[in-house]
Design a binder for these strands. Structure first.
Lengths: 350, 350
DNA sequence: GTGAAAGCGCTAACAC
DNA sequence: GTGTTAGCGCTTTCAC
């Protein structure tokens, strides 16, 4: 083990309290004393023991970020933003992965079985039912990200899934597309309040507004939201001879896979088929063709969420009722919906 | 605060020691007693306080993974693998980002100023000099990942940068390419032992073996190893009228950017220019065209590294000298170097 | 097989 | 402005 406060105090010829004062930036310490202490700290290579501090103060300086998987780009970028903002508040972030599984999410967030450790939780649910809010851990502050789970006991930074998805489809409609496929959800799941259900609702609303009838053949479920599923969804449509001139993938990763699938099928984007994604992950800028997508305001989500959490942790506004902040989205137009005449290729073959 | 061991002990009608025994799976506890304790734990929703446990036992159950940025796909995938393997040993992982900056890396890993907390450190250096090993924190077990920094005081899971890079270039040579550009390093930095320098050495060796003279115009430095830099590097060559029929990007992200840049320039891959990357990140499978790359054996690196670290933490083999494990690499051939006649396009214009 | 008690390193009253 | 001291919740040695 390393040296302790006592060692530092002894070497500096002061009491342990003074050492503590210096470390915690307590203002009323004379410069001479402070320097003596800092000297001793340097000499001994002293580092505070976080366990002891946590035990005593009830604060550990850690928050946890509960997400499906860092490996998914959207969450990697979210984590990046969260870590950065947390650092500004002097907080460390530990990442807890759930795999998007409802049970694992409940486990992570109900606190059951989880040792008591973090000062707060940032939670991006994916598989949860709205009724699950009742089993949230109430003993530690929590902020919800992403989904809109209304009436929960916690603060919530919500993505405007429905209106953002509607805007995405409107973007395609405005470019003359009529046979717009959606990848990543099934009509059965539309009642659900996860991203899938909500974004699908937005899709339906946009079609209705444009007077385009809903064609079930164009609604393509996909198990996971990964590249493989995206590729399979579009090649599936091609094999089945489904006629389509545009694709709205419910996230960018599906979109990147779809782009890949379309290329394999010899379908050119955006000439034959236009494509729009959702998330604005880094890669969409560098795909071939670059991908039009919906930016859900990820970095502002991270900043807002961390700030809300810090406020709750600090106890300020303990009596403030749960707040819901809606993040603002934006369509980022790139090549995959750019220019060119719509509806040739597979669509023309119809 | 939640309930403590005392509460559980009182409710179960046993002593605090017995509760501790149950929690820590101490074998000699009667089933009746154990069940009574477990009941009480359930009723009180008791969760052990990790700070207290850490303070008392000297173990926190956390290891830290020090990487440039989760946001970079390679590291996101590495983190994923590490978290999974750590879980198997009952360890949590906290991610520390350095931005690839030498100072930040030293800071993260020298321990100076960092509170004493984790049981072990997994460190993937990127900007470090070999001499920096002297300032490593020796008070906590550490395993180095990736670079080959010889003679350090720690275990080390090394990527075979030189031979893997040589194999990548050989792969291009075998497909008839002669004007092979390399993106991501400069000849000035070849003496350095970072990934860039080592991989560049492999490039040079392969050329020499193939009897291809080194053309400085084909060695393209790039500040960062991101998509943008990859795109700029290839468009830069096109604008300068440099003749090339293949590109070796020192990582996949550069490669994805290069693919994008080549597409923008109207150069087709692999017909005009073949491309090979390094890392085998998920996306290379779904890029258009799919990307040939070097798989450095990431998941086995993660498993090996965590296992080595756990061994050091547990104190087993405390007298074992530092070990270096070399991970085995593999060329994953995909479309970007597949088929087709080499050296047309820009190369033919030469 | 279970209990009593010491103490890990720190923070925060409270004295002075 | 600095020192004394109690105790956070747990593990662990040692009795019994």
């Amino acid at each position: 083990m390393g040296s302790t406060m006592h060692d530092v105090a002894r070497l500096a010829g002061v009491s342990i309290k003074t050492v503590s004062n210096v470390i915690n930036d307590y203002p009323h310490v004379r410069d001479v004393t402070r320097n003596r202490v800092l000297d001793a700290i340097g000499k001994l290579d002293y580092r505070p023991n976080l366990s002891a501090r946590g035990l005593r103060s009830g604060r550990t300086g850690f928050i946890s970020l509960v997400i499906p998987a860092v490996r998914e780009n959207y969450f990697a970028e979210l984590a990046h933003a969260v870590i950065g903002q947390a650092e500004r508040h002097g907080l460390w972030v530990m990442i807890e992965q759930t795999g998007g599984d409802r049970k694992a999410e409940l486990q992570a967030v109900s606190g059951t079985g989880r040792p008591h450790f973090v000062d707060g939780i940032l939670f991006n649910p994916v598989g949860l039912h709205p009724s699950d809010v009742s089993s949230f851990d109430r003993t530690v502050p929590m902020v919800l990200l992403g989904e809109r789970i209304f009436g929960g006991p916690t603060d919530h930074v919500a993505i405007e899934n429905i209106s953002a998805a509607r805007a995405a489809v409107q973007h395609l409609v405005q470019r003359g597309r009529r046979r717009i496929a959606v990848v990543g959800a099934s009509l059965d799941g539309m009642e659900e309040v996860g991203s899938a259900g909500l974004r699908l609702q937005g899709y339906c609303q946009a079609l209705e507004e444009a007077g385009i009838p809903l064609d079930p053949d164009l609604v393509r479920p996909s198990g996971a939201w990964n590249r493989e599923a995206g590729a399979l969804a579009v090649t599936g449509m091609v094999e089945e001879g489904v006629d389509f001139d545009a694709v709205f993938t419910l996230n960018d990763t599906l979109g990147l896979g779809a782009l890949r699938g379309l290329a394999s099928a010899g379908i050119s984007v955006p000439e034959d088929v236009a494509l729009i994604g959702f998330d604005n992950i880094d890669e969409t800028l560098y795909s071939v063709p670059s991908m039009t997508t919906v930016d859900p305001g990820r970095s502002s989500i991270a900043v807002t969420a961390v700030d809300l959490l810090v406020e709750r942790i600090s106890g300020k506004g303990a009596d403030t009722p749960p707040r819901t902040i809606r993040s603002s989205f934006e369509i980022i137009e790139r090549e995959s919906t750019g220019s060119a005449a719509p509806g040739i290729g597979t669509a023309a073959a119809h």
